[in-house]
Amino acid sequence: MQRVNMIMAESPGLITICLLGYLLSAECTVFLDHENANKILNRPKRYNSGKLEEFVQGNLERECMEEKCSFEEAREVFENTERTTEFWKQYVDGDQCESNPCLNGGSCKDDINSYECWCPFGFEGKNCELDVTCNIKNGRCEQFCKNSADNKVVCSCTEGYRLAENQKSCEPAVPFPCGRVSVSQTSKLTRAETVFPDVDYVNSTEAETILDNITQSTQSFNDFTRVVGGEDAKPGQFPWQVVLNGKVDAFCGGSIVNEKWIVTAAHCVETGVKITVVAGEHNIEETEHTEQKRNVIRIIPHHNYNAAINKYNHDIALLELDEPLVLNSYVTPICIADKEYTNIFLKFGSGYVSGWGRVFHKGRSALVLQYLRVPLVDRATCLRSTKFTIYNNMFCAGFHEGGRDSCQGDSGGPHVTEVEGTSFLTGIISWGEECAMKGKYGIYTKVSRYVNWIKEKTKLT
């Protein structure tokens, strides 16, 4: 034993070699072989497995989906700052455009905790909710729209109204504003409101030439003092309507412009014939205590009207009353817009006519005020429907199939267009061939041609 100890002390290297040989010859039971080890760690190889990531292109799944990435790591994937920024906006807080917040056709661009709407022409605001041009839906104005110097929408209202708090709607500024039905039992019968379409306001006024200088022999019209197929109006439903009495009662109609003036057809009036105007009328054979009678003290036909040349060209006249009318729910003026808007309103496509005229061709006159909704007829169809001249200051309205029309005794009465609950004068009943005849239409004086003249002559002093 002493000898062994001496050998170990003198030859430590020998001992180490012996131990190493023993270990190498022993069977290893701690580690699995290569094949079995792979069965336990069965993990798919990654895209760049075996390579240094710093030297390969980034992978979106590896960089940002398996674990949260930084902007720089995302930049490695896209290799483009702009594309990385677009991805980053949604990656950080989701897609803010998912709810489609942009209105009126706006395009949404996502941002971090926010979004941006790219608005089409005519709109602005956070969600493109603000109209900035009158060309689109009248700028959301209830009545009139004008573009300011910086191309912003400025709404306005006709006389007797003021802008509401929203700067879009119009509200009454006087007790009985024009064009409004205020009798409670008839307010439910107000005709369907007309909503502004998209309009090209630059070209809204037709490029028409008034044929002022045409000389033409007097034409022989049949029954051209021209509501057939209409309905009984309720008291106060058309408070701007008046009836004219002269040699015979209810020979023509008219509309209240203001307390002192009536507008009617020029062919209705004769110099030297006494005319009485009755406002607030409903049943011409009954006294309903809503009527107001006034005498006409002055007749002003349009300066281009000449019955000797043509009885229905420039067929418009103004009547001055001896005493002002007292405005109330049964006696209310009709609204008159400017030339541009009167023309736009007419193009809405349908209007209402009213009167006490004959209820059928050569038949009896109506006792109760009649009204009828009539569609506008395109000019080409209008011209083809008659052998008589249709001037540019006239328009056609009615039904091709016949059966409904204005008729004798309705002449001078109103053709009105309702705009968001307020009625505007767009025409004056003038003439036609018979009444409600198939293929024939009622012919009306186009008020847009005469609004400046009306307003100039009827100013209240």
Rank of each mutant, 00 (worst) to 15 (best):
I428M: 06
P375T: 14
G349M: 04
C252P: 00
Q2R: 15
C108Y: 02
A380I: 09
A37G: 15
L52V: 06
G412K: 03
N393P: 02
N222A: 15
C335L: 00
L369W: 07
K146A: 11
S49Y: 08
K438V: 09
E116A: 10
G427W: 01
I344Y: 12
A380Y: 14
P101V: 03
R43G: 15
K440L: 03
I309Y: 06
K188W: 10
R379L: 14
G21K: 03
N104H: 10
L325R: 00
C128K: 02
K168A: 08
V174Y: 05
V326R: 09
Y91S: 15
Q90G: 13
D315P: 01
F196H: 12
F221I: 12
C97N: 01
H289F: 11
S430P: 03
S156A: 09
V199D: 12
E270N: 12
M8S: 14
T426G: 00
F360C: 11
C382E: 01
Y201H: 10
T386F: 10
L369Y: 11
Q241A: 13
T16K: 08
Y330V: 06
E165A: 06
G421W: 02
N151T: 10
I210R: 10
G409L: 07
E86P: 15
E231Q: 09
N127Y: 05
K234Q: 07
L325P: 00
I428V: 11
G106T: 01
C18Y: 04
R364F: 07
T225C: 05
N283V: 09
E270S: 06
T81R: 13
S365Q: 14
S423K: 12
S220Y: 05
I316R: 00
L20V: 10
K234T: 13
E27D: 12
G349Q: 05
S411H: 13
R358N: 08
P333K: 04
C435A: 04
V4C: 12
I443L: 12
M394Y: 04
D131I: 10
Y450I: 02
K188E: 08
S184N: 12
E73Q: 13
L103K: 08
K457I: 14
I275W: 06
T209W: 08
Y391R: 14
P235L: 09
N295V: 08
T225P: 09
A9W: 14
G402L: 12
E420T: 09
C119P: 01
T389Q: 15
I210S: 14
D232G: 05
R140S: 03
L319I: 07
T190G: 11
N147Y: 11
K234P: 06
F176W: 07
D150C: 04
G58I: 11
A250K: 08
M6Q: 10
S49G: 14
T158V: 12
G105K: 03
A37E: 02
R43N: 14
C252R: 01
S148K: 07
G160Y: 02
G439T: 10
V183D: 08
D198T: 08
N328H: 03
C396D: 00
T417A: 05
E320H: 03
Y161S: 00
A279H: 00
F224S: 12
F78C: 05
D223H: 12
T290V: 06
Y312P: 03
I136S: 13
T190W: 11
S114T: 09
S385Q: 12
E76C: 04
L318H: 01
Q2A: 14
A307N: 09
S25N: 10
T461F: 11
H303M: 08
S365K: 14
E433Q: 14
P120V: 08
L367I: 10
S365P: 13
A250R: 08
E433T: 12
W261E: 00
S49E: 15
N38H: 10
I309V: 14
V326A: 10
N313L: 09
F395V: 02
G50F: 12
N5K: 14
P177L: 00
P235Y: 07
S107F: 07
W240N: 00
V77N: 15
Q216Y: 12
C155F: 00
A149D: 14
P197C: 04
R404W: 14
E259P: 09
L367Q: 14
A233C: 04
E208I: 12
V174E: 09
I214A: 10
M394L: 08
K274T: 08
T290K: 05
V228T: 12
S11A: 11
F395C: 02
V227D: 12
Y391N: 14
E434W: 11
T225H: 09
I429M: 14
V296N: 01
E82D: 15
T461M: 11
A436C: 07
P101E: 02
L19W: 07
V277C: 03
T29G: 08
Q219A: 12
Y352S: 10
I300F: 06
D410V: 14
F123Q: 03
N343F: 03
K152Q: 08
C335P: 02
G351H: 05
S406G: 14
G357I: 09
I429L: 11
E66S: 08
E86C: 04
C102G: 01
G280D: 01
L367N: 13
G272C: 05
S204D: 10
N304R: 11
Y391D: 12
Q143P: 00
E281S: 10
T209D: 11
Y305I: 01
I297C: 05
T194Y: 13
S182M: 10
T194A: 11
K459S: 15
W453D: 00
G58T: 15
E456C: 06
W431K: 13
D93W: 04
